[in-house]
């Protein structure tokens, strides 16, 4: 049987819209409201190749103002990791793409790693992105989730040296998250500037490479073709949701 990590890699390598990079929307769970979360995830899963399920945190130090605000609203609305995992576990149908959980370290630690892995598997989660848990601090967590077939997704940046990049990109399953700006989420992106960086990342890992941070439009997504296996769209989607727009329609327009 294929592991969840492998399933995630396969979904990115074989996107629903051939010729385009896989599209992976990021949602802050519980934003704009908790009520719409299950429906949003299911709707997005029909269009997207994977979904990044964001766990809101009180101190999101790697996020820009838009995701900070969405996190605050979600927390004020009562979104917790336990609620997120329960909701995903009891969806009325199976999502049509793999899910990835993105969380800062502390909510995961407070939940307890062992319990977390069981609950994540039950919820259909295929991997974890933990932006404040770099390679040096993540060994125990990585070993545990790998033993259960889950992916630990490492972030790399334009300032990551080659030898470190090779280390972070080793192994199989999941993907490498290539941060496309040296900065916090939400900053603008010049596709031309980053293609050589993405080519370098791809040459140093056997995993699929997904570009993230600052990808906002269908043109951005298209420009990544041939340089990245996937495109992660966070801030632009959260802005659309904040304006009361239909998130599924927003993502559909990215791959139109």
């Amino acid at each position: 049987m294929t592991s969840p990590a492998q399933r995630l890699a396969d979904a990115i390598r074989h996107p629903k819209h051939p010729g385009l990079p896989a599209v992976m929307p990021y949602v802050t769970s519980g934003f704009p409201t908790r009520d719409g979360f299950a429906e949003l995830v299911l709707g997005l899963s029909d269009v997207a190749d994977a979904i990044e399920i964001g766990v809101p945190f009180s101190d999101p130090m790697a996020d820009g103002p838009v995701i900070q605000r969405s996190s605050r609203i979600a927390l004020d609305g009562g979104a917790t990791l336990a609620w997120i995992l329960e909701t995903l576990t009891s969806l009325p149908r199976k999502p049509a793409c793999p899910l990835v959980l993105m969380s800062y370290a502390n909510p995961l630690m407070a939940f307890g790693y062992e319990r977390l892995v069981d609950a994540a598997l039950a919820a259909g989660v295929c991997g974890f992105i933990v932006p404040d848990m770099p390679w040096e601090e993540s060994e125990a967590f990585r070993v545990l989730i790998a033993s259960r077939g889950l992916a630990s997704i490492q972030l790399v940046t334009p300032v990551t040296p080659d030898d470190r990049l090779s280390k972070l990109g080793q192994g199989e399953g999941g993907f490498v998250y290539a941060v496309t700006v040296t900065g916090i989420t939400g900053a603008a992106m010049e596709p031309a500037e980053i293609s050589s960086y993405l080519d370098r990342v791809r040459s140093l890992t056997g995993k699929p490479v997904c570009a993230g941070f600052g990808i906002r439009t269908a043109a951005h997504v298209r420009a990544l073709s041939g340089h990245a296996d996937g495109a992660i769209v966070g801030t632009a989607l959260i802005e659309a949701l904040g304006r009361g727009e239909d998130g599924v329609a927003f993502v559909r327009a990215l791959v139109a």
Binding site: S58, D59, M61, A105, N106
Partner: peptide, 21 residues
């Protein structure tokens, strides 16, 4: 209780969900 904030693992004032208070 122990937890991670601002780049370090130390004692932390947090709620049951690991949100810093």
């Amino acid at each position: 209780r122990p937890g991670v904030l601002h780049g370090t693992y130390s004692m932390l004032l947090q709620d049951a969900d690991g949100q810093v208070v």
